[in-house]
Write a protein that binds this DNA or RNA. Structure first.
Length: 308
DNA sequence: TCCGTAACGGTTGAC
DNA sequence: GCGTCAACCGTTACG
């Protein structure tokens, strides 16, 4: 039984803070995968970060499967399977054979490749379509008229859904195959992959650019907010939770507003802390790939290796 | 002791 | 604006 925590949600058995129903901050998720890649056992990661071992297991499993450390899309509804195209085919089948059964229509949708097993309408759905949308064959369907409907994709899944089909979780990144290993850096250029994230610059730029057109991430909390919050640094002096600043965690939870502009973060190859991070704790705690290069300045490890 | 996973209570967002 | 539904979340407990 988690202990209620007045400000930051609840405290788990390990003493870590979590918010029920909400994903862990990306910083923690990243650390979990980083530590796993360093060969640290999940049980040790769990204890060190004060995250339940079940959660560690889940995050690592997901990373193995998808190459992404990000949580899935929360909320929303499943897309409709009865797209205009499907309805059209149902109507065609019915028109060609008025005595056709719904289950036969379902089989034909599969056989003709109109749908696959994941998005084929149920028999009851087909019956409903026959009853409501088709009814009398002499009447045009609602969307058939002088003004055609807007085109819809054959697979109407909302792009925010990473996995097009239930039970068929595939990586949404191009060129990604199923097999993956935690201990090996990803070879593909995944915006979510740790191998890319470990290039902290890309990490930060994507964070700062979240929400801009073409960004890999929507401008929401799920997308790297915790490292660009004005509240991020001060919490170190207040005692971290899970090795992560409380305020950073809180910032993650509350969807704070504006990340610093990229230009304020990156100065050429140097990572320059935004002013709002003044007095920051050592970022290398969160990002071991960063090397402190002086007051408020960090180098990414790759930059360091390049110049040494 | 470690790990995978089902159950649980919770949040979220499309409809 | 609100309720419903079905996604997802992390924790906990169990084997």
């Amino acid at each position: 039984m988690p202990i209620p925590c007045q400000t930051y949600g609840e405290v788990n058995q390990l003493g870590g803070v979590f918010v029920n129903g909400r994903p862990l901050p990306n910083t923690i998720r990243l650390r979990i995968v980083e530590l796993a890649q360093l060969g640290i056992r999940p049980c040790d990661i769990s204890r060190q970060l004060r995250v339940s071992h079940g959660c560690v297991s889940k995050i690592l499993a997901r990373y193995n499967e998808t190459g992404s450390i990000l949580p899935g899309a929360i909320g929303g509804s499943k897309p409709r399977v009865t797209t205009p195209n499907v309805v059209k085919h149902i109507r065609d089948y019915k028109h060609g054979d008025p005595g056709i059964f719904a289950w036969e229509i379902r089989d034909r949708l599969l056989a003709d490749g109109v749908c696959d097993k994941y998005n084929v309408p149920s028999v009851s759905s087909i019956s409903r379509i026959l009853r409501n949308k088709i009814g009398s064959l002499s009447q045009p369907a609602p969307y058939e008229g002088s003004k055609p409907p807007l085109p819809q994709p054959a697979l109407p899944y909302n792009p925010i859904y990473q996995y097009p089909y239930p039970g068929a979780k595939v990586n949404s990144h191009p060129g990604v195959t199923g097999a993956a290993h935690v201990s090996l850096p990803r070879a593909w250029p995944s915006a979510h992959s740790v191998s890319n994230i470990l290039g902290i610059r890309a990490f930060m730029e994507q964070s700062a650019l979240a929400g801009t057109e073409g960004s890999a991430y929507p401008p929401k909390m799920e997308d790297w907010p915790s490292v660009n919050r004005a509240t991020f640094p001060a919490a170190a002096a207040q005692g971290g939770v899970n090795g992560i600043d409380k305020l950073a965690l809180e910032a993650d939870i509350k969807y704070p507003q504006q990340p610093p502009p990229p230009s304020s973060i990156w100065n050429s190859s140097r990572f320059v802390l935004p002013e709002c991070w003044a007095g920051s704790s050592d970022l290398s705690l969160l990002f071991p790939q960063c090397l402190k290069a002086g007051k408020g300045k960090y180098f990414s490890l790759s930059v360091f290796n390049h110049f040494r």
